[in-house]
Design a protein around this nucleic acid. Structure first.
Lengths: 156, 156
DNA sequence: TGACAATATGAATAAAATTCGCAGCGAAAG
DNA sequence: CTTTCGCTGCGAATTTTATTCATATTGTCA
């Protein structure tokens, strides 16, 4: 699906996505046009889904994280949609087990969190919820570990 | 800390972080040099933490997500560090309550997941773990809701 | 071996990034 | 009230990059 040069390019972009193409080309030792071509193909193939800026949540009154275990009627798609529609909700996962959904939230403070929770409780299909407030986030990355994929060949 | 033009710029970058500066400038109706200056300041002030490429996890043998509730000795920083050091571990949160840590994982399959779990269990401070396997992720975003911050003024 | 498909290259041109001197605008000081 | 200072935007000039395209190279398969 992709070779070690692609992996190298992805590693670079994973680190700093807004650096110029020419710089990427320099780092992988290829012509800029060739790198551009590769990146385009990675995008076309859906390997690269997009590029985003990482903002400091604390700067936007979003300093409080919490996870909510939602016990819900099995496979209630409506519940999932309703949960996902709440702006403070960052993630909605349908999980195996009695807690049908695991929801990740981000709010300004406890007051706002409380308000969101009261918004979740009466949602269709929701039987009960259990909340876990985050004290401290030790690690939070979305980076894919690409080192495994270097098995295809060598690169610096 | 920032005005509505900054918010507008951040909204654009949140959508497509790799678009040219000149295009951002066009969209906010300012000179490219002015926009560049603003973006630099947002970076300096730590409001913009960085730019990253969003990869399709399924393309990298990372199709299986799971959450692990780790019951641990209170405030064991060593446990947190050990958890964070595992490559498959995407997030480590210290939470209020008996389950000291909430860990988010990404692996290729059940076999790998099982292996990671057996790696977590004997970690120092870990008393017990409870695993929730994700069947389907309905929503997963890291985007900050910037609409609230338009209260400073109007923008298109 | 020959043909084909895929991909790299390098030159050329269009576009963008970056720098910098200057101007406008408020706020605080005189 | 006016001056000064700091901040921010502008636009021209220059460097750098993006993008295109014709050509060359590589590897595969018949």
């Amino acid at each position: 699906m992709f070779d070690e040069i692609d992996i190298h390019i992805l590693e670079i972009l994973q680190e700093k996505a807004r650096i110029p193409n020419a710089e990427v080309a320099r780092q992988v030792g290829m012509a800029p046009s060739a790198v551009l071509e590769r990146i385009r193909k990675l995008e076309e193939r859906g390997i690269i889904e997009g590029y985003e800026v990482r903002l400091n949540p604390a700067c936007f009154h979003q300093g409080l994280s919490a996870f909510v275990q939602v016990e819900a009627d099995w496979s209630d798609a409506q519940t999932a949609t309703a949960l996902a529609a709440i702006p403070s909700v960052q993630e909605v996962h349908q999980v195996v087990g009695p807690d049908g959904f695991l929801v990740k939230l981000r709010t300004a403070d406890h007051t706002t969190l409380s308000r969101i929770l009261q918004q979740i409780r009466p949602l269709p299909g929701v039987k009960s919820i259990r909340t876990q407030v985050v004290l401290e986030t030790v690690k939070e990355t979305r980076r894919v570990d690409l080192t495994e994929h270097n098995g295809h060949g060598r690169n610096s």
